[in-house]
């Protein structure tokens, strides 16, 4: 087990290197350091000299990959790639192009993201499983048919509609919750209600439908048929046997996205003005602060790989037949 984990961790390194190289190439083709400098020096009265100074200060004056003017290790070390990309591996995110420490910002903005994402995931899971179980109970009836159609309809509505409509109805017409904003502490709960609710409603269609198929698959298995044949009541079969077994694929499916909860939701956060990592990323894209975008890409990739690893491990935990090689 431990050997397996170590092997997986080692395997993650080339992947992260790959991610790094790809993003590095993309971003430096997009924006030369000159562009960045001008972006950040503002639009009035900028001279080339100031641009050069800015680049020097931020370490963008080095060549991209190989510094021919230096010798020895410095040929590699005095390059943009070394300074801007490889440092990410030790989670040294450096400074954003506007001069703030990215690592500090990430640790601060992580919490609002989690405050939205975690309740959304948990409540959403609970609701979807309940609905799916109900639908599965009424399988092959009209309730089942129409429930699936409603699920598909819910899936087909753009998430933007949920957000715009939700703000309009709940915040403006009914005045039940603040339209947007964020606050820490108990007082802040009322800010979370709407985004969490919208997140749940937006995701409920697809997850209910997905869990329903899992339940149905489980219900067609032999042991369920045997249990029923033994005369066990339907709801007992459903709750005791089907639910318990179907939870395995559902939960392992959840594990893979757990780490990514940190990243937050791009759209929701920027609509509701929540100072999480999602809106951090959007802002960075809009302001073309590539130092932040690069860091977020790296963080995202890292968390994704952690998620994969956790999934593999969770499989062995719930199902001892799966052995990790």
């Amino acid at each position: 087990m431990i050997a397996y984990i170590i092997r997986r961790v080692l395997y993650a390194i080339p992947i992260l290197v790959g991610v790094n190289v790809i993003t590095f190439l993309l971003f430096f083709v997009v924006n030369t350091p000159d562009d960045m400098a001008r972006m950040f020096l503002g639009q009035k009265h900028v001279t080339q000299e100031q641009v050069e100074d800015w680049k020097t200060e931020r370490g963008y004056h080095y060549p991209l990959f190989y510094n021919m003017q230096e010798e020895g290790a410095d040929t590699i070390r005095k390059t943009i790639f070394y300074n801007k990309s490889l440092r990410l591996f030790i989670f040294d995110f450096g400074r954003s192009d506007s001069g703030r420490d990215i690592g500090f910002d990430i640790t601060q903005r992580m919490w609002p993201s989690l405050a939205i994402a975690v309740p959304q995931l948990l409540i959403g899971l609970l609701v979807a499983i309940t609905f799916a179980l109900l639908i599965a109970f009424f399988r092959a009836t009209y309730i089942d048919y129409w429930a699936v159609v409603i699920c598909v309809a819910l899936m087909s509505i753009s998430s933007l509609f949920y957000i715009i409509g939700g703000q309009y109805v709940m915040g403006k017409i009914l005045r039940v919750v603040p339209i947007s904003g964020f606050e820490t502490g108990l007082f802040g709960i009322k800010f979370l209600i709407l985004p969490v609710l919208i997140g749940i409603v937006g995701g409920i269609g697809s997850s209910t439908r997905w869990y329903r198929t899992i339940f149905l698959e489980e219900m067609n298995r032999d042991y369920v048929r045997t249990a029923r044949a033994k005369g066990i009541a339907e709801q007992v079969v459903l709750f005791r046997h089907v639910l318990r077994n179907a939870l395995i694929p559902i939960l392992t499916g959840v594990v893979v996205i757990l780490p990514l909860l940190f990243m937050g939701s791009l759209i929701t956060e920027s609509f509701f003005g929540i100072p999480g990592l999602g809106s951090y990323t959007i802002d960075a894209i809009n302001r073309q602060d590539f130092a932040i975008v690069r860091s977020m890409v790296f963080l995202g990739a890292f968390l994704y790989i952690v998620g994969l690893l956790l999934t593999d491990i969770s499989y062995t935990v719930v199902d001892p037949r799966v052995r990790l090689r």
């Binding site: 990323t281 975008v293 995202g300």
Partner: peptide, 25 residues
Amino acid sequence: QYLYTTLNSIPGVLLIAAAVLMLNV
């Protein structure tokens, strides 16, 4: 497998954003 794990692990939106900006350039 390496190729697709690498590509998959880059958050999609960011990859798209970078590529679209590149196209603009």
